[in-house]
Design a protein around this nucleic acid. Structure first.
Length: 579
RNA sequence: GUCCCCGUAGCUCAGCAGGAUAGAGCAUCAGAUUCCUAAUCUGAGGGCCGCAGGUUCGAAUCCUGCCGGGGACGCCA
């Protein structure tokens, strides 16, 4: 149970005894910290519903309230109940509030979606960062979570690429219709070649209808199993995965599965048959479609193209087949998709289709969409030249900036080149990830490199710095033979504020988990770090003379360090021990 | 055209299961370091919460309309 849950339960009991619905007992942080730590507004709503005087009702609630936890419970204004905890009761909450899910679930989270042959770029950043964090939060609260990269390896872009290569190098053995496999597994195509061919092919198909038809036929041939095409495709996929793994690793993003659209392809024929037998698959303009519109739709929801007029499948069909694959291989309770907001209609369609087909309940499929990361001009982030910025270059950019800042501030000096480089990377990536995660998932936000690398205020580096100081002061205490942590006894206001922040950890985690919003955890982390900084500025720790006070403060510092570590883990942020 | 998201301090953003004096960071101004990392801390100024109605004892929050920005809308993903 979280702290707010426990306080709410106490208030609810009092509301029930006062003769009203216990649901009015919900407690939240006080809007007026000058007056109290917590407040309950339930008396106002309850009085309205039961036509009573709100202040009188609040008075009755307070009379029935179990006072064990409270130093003060006062009625204020029109009927607010202001609550302040006893210091010893508050202190006892620290460390006892790691919230766990009562009934853990098995979850698959899909947060990659990078395309084969296309380098990772800033457009993949948010899915990776948010998805990684949601995965870790879910794990931390007890869910059994599998993260899947779900590569874009089976759609039209593969046909575009293969047809492009065929036009350029028709003499390659892979294109000889009379040749029989097996084909050599090392086509003379490098990752660099792929990255150059992809945009060229895409542009050519856009400009020329005949060229586009060629790509569609190549897609169909690939999907039908033409072995020369398959050999090339395998090579393209392997090259791409190797490059992607490196980029994701540098970001601290780690997938359990590297499956792709193609892995679900073998299931398509039987799914098609099943849909047909259920009467869900219809023919329309030469394509096979599934209608998913509903009577009460406010908007027009177009049907899914299960197979196009060429007979090839696109990402609607592979997404459906992937759901079936996941059901069979993992039997999950829930599937989450961390994919940008523009895909909302797509997932609406897919979820409706699998629900209609009786495959998986729509309510257990969640599209956790996110907004775009924009440049200072308010438009999607681009390089100064207007091109797409590669993820690799982006990481290098923030790392370089972090290194500059370290030098400016005289930090990480004399640590040796290797450690300095490692600190710069962690600081840069932390700045980047915290900037992204501290914005609500659903908002667009402006990524201003100068602002977020300034390292002041609500930033990743501020958090890393707080943690480094915690490490440092604990080390100092240890060296001085200050003894270990003792019972936490809150006395100074800064100690009380820190204790309060620590005790609200469980609520922050639960809230972030329930709403799938990591920024709630970021807010908590920043508030905790701020409370720590204030405490640190006001209270001596390692060299405090009073033994009991010193032991108590060491306990507070240790608890703060442990909680920050837990938060960094859930956010997917790696922290250096010193900086 | 229809639908979706958004509009809060000079800037970037929280808050939106209705409630007290609307918060944070940055920027600006004024302070703090014989002492555990000053990337820190203390204080100040700064707001018709896009506009107009409605519901309510009470609206940044709920409803309607309008204005402005972004996005989606059958064979791309």
């Amino acid at each position: 149970m979280t702290l707010l849950d426990e306080l709410s339960a106490l208030l609810s009991a009092a509301f029930a005894q006062a003769g009203t619905d216990a649901a009015y007992g919900r407690v939240k942080r006080a809007d007026r910290p000058d007056l109290a730590q917590f407040q309950c507004n339930g008396a106002l709503a309850a009085a309205k519903a039961t036509k009573q005087n709100p202040r009188a009702l609040a008075g009755s609630v307070v009379e029935h309230l179990d006072q064990a936890a409270f130093a003060d419970a006062a009625i204020a204004g029109p009927g607010f109940i202001n609550l302040t905890l006893k210091d010893d009761w508050l202190s006892a909450q620290i460390g006892a509030r790691a919230w766990k899910r009562p009934a853990p679930e098995r979850i698959v989270i899909d947060y990659g979606g990078p395309n084969v042959a296309k380098p990772l770029h800033v457009g993949h950043l948010r899915a990776a960062i948010i998805g990684e964090s949601l995965k870790r939060i879910a794990r931390a609260v007890g869910d059994d979570v599998t993260g899947d990269a779900h590569l874009g390896d089976w759609g039209l872009q593969m046909g575009q690429l293969i047809s492009e290569l065929e036009l350029r190098q028709p003499d390659l053995i892979y294109f000889d219709p009379s040749a029989e496999g097996p084909f050599p597994s090392d086509p003379p195509i490098s990752l660099k070649d792929l990255e150059e061919m992809y945009p060229a092919a895409s542009a050519a198909c856009k400009a020329d209808k005949d060229r586009a038809d060629l790509a569609r036929r190549a897609t169909k041939a690939l999907q039908d199993g033409r072995s020369g095409y398959r050999a090339l495709w395998r090579h393209f996929v392997d090259l791409s995965i190797a490059a992607m793994k490196k980029d994701y690793a540098d970001l601290g993003v780690d997938f359990d599965l590297w499956k792709g659209e193609s892995d679900a392809d073998p299931l398509i024929p039987e799914i098609g048959d099943d849909l047909t037998s259920r009467g869900l698959l219809e023919h329309s303009d030469g394509a096979e479609i599934i209608r998913v519109a509903r009577e009460d739709d406010k908007k027009e929801v177009p049907p899914i193209i299960f197979r196009n007029s060429e007979g090839a499948v696109g990402y609607h069909a592979t997404d459906i087949a992937t759901i079936v694959d996941r059901i069979r291989t993992m039997a999950p309770d829930r599937m989450l998709y961390v994919v940008d907001a523009r895909q909302r209609l797509h997932f609406e369609q897919v979820f409706r289709a699998v629900d209609r087909a009786g495959l998986f309940e729509e309510s257990r499929l969640e599209h956790l969409w996110f907004g775009t990361m924009n440049g200072k001009d308010g438009k999607p982030f681009k390089t100064r030249e207007g091109g797409t910025l590669k993820l690799r270059d982006f990481i290098d950019m923030v790392t370089d900036k972090a290194r500059e800042r370290l030098v400016e501030n005289g930090l990480a000096e004399g640590y040796g080149d290797e450690e300095t480089a490692s600190i710069a990377r962690m600081v840069g990536v932390a700045a980047l990830k915290f900037a992204d995660l501290s914005n609500p998932r659903t908002s667009d936000y402006v990524f201003d490199i100068d602002r977020f690398t300034s390292f002041e205020g609500k930033t990743g580096p501020y958090l890393l710095y707080a943690r480094a100081r915690i490490r440092s002061v604990l080390a100092k205490a240890d060296q001085a033979g200050a003894g270990g942590a003792g019972d936490i006894v809150v006395a100074a206001p800064e100690e009380r504020d820190l204790a309060l922040a620590l005790a609200l950890f469980g609520d922050a985690v639960r809230d972030a988990y329930d709403k799938r919003l990591p920024h709630i955890l970021c807010e908590h982390a920043f508030g905790l770090a701020q409370s720590f900084s204030k405490f640190y500025a006001a209270c001596r720790v390692a060299d405090e003379a009073d033994n009991a006070v010193r032991a108590s403060r060491i306990g507070l510092v240790e608890a703060t360090g442990e909680q920050l570590d837990a938060i960094f883990d859930m956010l997917g942020i790696e922290a250096p021990d010193r900086m």
